[in-house]
Amino acid sequence: MISGTGKGMGHFEMDLQLKAQELVSVLNEGKLSDAMEIIQELHEFRHQTFFSEVGHLTRGLHEAIKSFSTELGSSLEIDDGSPVQEDADAADRLNYVIEITEKNAHDTMDRVDKALSLVDKLDSQSERFKDLLSLVGQLEKEHDSLNGVYDRTCAVKEESEQTIGILREELTDIVVSQSYQDITGQLIRRVINLVTNVETHLVGLMEMAAQVERLSGVEILSGTDDQQTNKKNPIQAEGPQINKESADVVSNQDEVDDLLSSLGF
């Protein structure tokens, strides 16, 4: 994104050498006023190069941020009914990531809650099973063929109770692991702050650069806006399944996966 920097400085060096040689030759000829003029030219030239470089860097950074927003945009826009607007900035997009991860964390916990209530049901069934089992215990004394069935069934029941206990622990761990949403959310908020700060300062820098351009006549913020073409191509740099028009055919899970993977999760 930030291009042309080396070339500009190289050009500066070359011109500097030419001017220096010129300076030496006019000095050798004793043309002092000409020499002063050249020194003045060098001075102005240095300033122009400096402002031009700052302009290039500013422009490059600005485009990098715009391109970041656009790239994020094309991966978010596949979400049908997405609240993120096409012109939303990077901060909006990142806030949307927090919202989506929050929603998904709650969806997971809803399911775990349902699963836990099923585990409770298994627990109460186990109680009823115990009652039935004691009946087998009584019958065992009357029927030789039932010998040992009570003990063996008790062992199975105990095993299943242990399994229920482990299942409960696993489900609780799933709930606790949803804390990733909080952790990542806090980090994303920091990035949002950073991006917002950079954008604010960048606007200041752009304004300053424009003013310098106006005052000195140095053309530093010119060039074609590549982003215009990018914006008109919403499927750019994404897989074939990403199509804005047919967003409804993309499954929910895929949408979330794409969103997260595009952010490096």
Binding site: H106, T172, Q178, S179, Q181, G185
Partner: peptide, 17 residues
């Protein structure tokens, strides 16, 4: 007290346990 509803719910669930 937590600004993330996810975390409030996790803590609530653990307290319930």
């Amino acid at each position: 007290v937590d600004d993330f509803s996810t975390m409030r719910r996790i803590i609530k669930n653990l307290l319930r346990d």
